[in-house]
Amino acid sequence: EFRFGPCRVEGVVLPELWEAFWAVKNTVQAQDDITSVRLLKAQVLQNVSDAESCYLVHSLLKFYLNTVFKNYHSKIAKVKILKSFSSLANNFIDIVSKLQPSKDKDMLSISESAHRRFMLFRRAFKQMDTEVALVKAFGEVDILLTWMQKFYQL
C-alpha cells in the first residue's frame, strides 16, 4: 500500500505500474528530443515531507489525468502503447479516488508548500509548446513513479 503521510492507498500493485510504463518507455522518451529540459525537477520532488506528500501526489496525479493523459491520448498510434497508457491512467484514477488530503486549517502552510512545488512543475509545463510538453510529461512518468515508490510499503 501507499502511505503518503496520513493518506493510505491500498490495492495498487506498484510493479504493475512499472511494467506498464517500461513497455513503452523507450518509444515515448525517444519522442522527446529536448533533453535539456526536465519538468519534474529536483526542486519539485526532493525532500518532500510526509505531510506534504499527500497534497503533492494528489495535485500531480490529477494534472496527469486531466491534462497529460487526456491530451496525449490522441497521439497514440500503437495498441501496445494504448494498453500501457490505459493501465497507468486507470491506476492513477484508483489512487486519486482513495487519496483524502486533509482540509484542516492547521495544515494550510503544508498544503501551500506542496502547491508551490506543484506550480513549479506546472509552470515548466506551460512554458513549453503544448504538444512537446505532453510528450515530455508522459515520458517522465518514471520519475513520478520513482518518487511515489518512497511511500510504498510491500
Binding site: 518507455k25 523507450n26 525517444a30 533533453t35 518514471d142
Partner: peptide, 8 residues
Amino acid sequence: TDRFSSLQ
C-alpha cells in the same frame, strides 16, 4: 543512448 536511470 536512451534516457538512462541506473535504479531502473
